[in-house]
């Protein structure tokens, strides 16, 4: 088995009395495509927010490559190699498609104020690097042709792919995708599936939240199921499919009811 790259130990987030995420242990192995599923309100997005430092952890720890990264600020999370997309698309709408990706390169460039004014060698190297690699990433997600369009204009599916490209620009070891296929038609969905496989084959670990069972069963090696903040099981798609707890959770019964 591969090394563990991302791990949570009894990770919890409570909003007042509401246990949005409760004692979740999860292990993501390097190179895996790891799925997270669960009914609405199961705490999946909250879980991502905890991993990336967007909200504060109530208790428990997050380990990344063996280092404790619990509660470190989101900009540091991006720097050490974990990047994400958002369920409710959060693009920089008034920038070009390419500029959105260029922003993702922020931590990998060094141009300062004076370098920018003087257009020094650092600036030129940075800009060349960012433009070239940005266009490559747009090629990867199939948006090269729209590089100079405004990011707010393209279709829903395109915006989701752009978010993936932007997240990849930070050169993440682990890519977190929050419902990358939401609102897409079947052909777009299979394109996204292809894209995720392609990214995985380039050596990145992927954790994906998705509602579409078919997509997740086809894509993921390991799946974690959350319900009402609790992890109810974890395993291969075949194991998940036959787990009675999962079935009852999806039929609308909470555990113990």
């Amino acid at each position: 088995m591969n090394d563990v790259i991302l791990e949570t130990r009894s990770l919890s987030k409570h909003f007042g009395g509401l246990k949005a995420v409760d004692n979740v242990d999860m292990i993501v192995r390097s190179g895996a495509i790891h799925g997270i599923i669960g009914p609405n309100g199961a705490g999946k997005t909250t879980f991502f927010n905890l991993l990336t430092g967007l909200i504060e952890v109530t208790s428990g720890t997050v380990l990344f490559g063996g280092n404790n990264i619990t509660n470190i600020p989101p900009e540091r999370v991006a720097e050490i190699g974990m990047s994400r997309t958002f369920q409710n698309i959060k693009l920089f709408r008034f920038m070009t498609v390419l500029d959105n990706v260029k922003v993702g390169f922020h931590t990998r460039t060094r141009t300062g104020l004076f370098a920018a004014v003087a257009r020094s060698a650092t600036f030129r190297a940075d800009e060349d690097f960012v433009t070239e690699r940005g266009l490559e990433l747009l090629d990867l997600v199939g948006l090269r042709k729209q590089a100079y369009n405004q990011a707010a204009n393209p279709s829903y599916g395109t915006q989701r792919r752009l978010e993936i490209a932007r997240a990849l620009a930070t050169d993440p070891k682990v890519l977190l995708l929050d419902e990358p296929a939401a609102g897409m038609n079947p052909s777009e969905k299979s394109e996204v599936m292809e894209l995720i496989r392609k990214i995985s084959s380039l050596g990145r670990t992927i954790v994906v939240i998705e509602h579409d069972m078919k997509l997740i069963m086809n894509l993921c090696g390991v799946i974690t199921v959350l319900n009402q903040g609790l992890k109810i099981c974890e395993g291969t798609p075949a194991e998940i499919r036959n787990n009675p707890d999962v079935i009852s959770a999806y039929l609308g019964h909470s555990r113990g009811a």
Partner: peptide, 22 residues
């Protein structure tokens, strides 16, 4: 430059900018 892009990104969506390492 990279600095200006970071500023505009903050204007457009501060949380996303943060998540991109700014």
């Amino acid at each position: 430059s990279r600095i200006g892009r970071a500023w505009i990104a903050i204007r457009e969506d501060e949380l996303a900018a943060k998540s991109m390492g700014i």
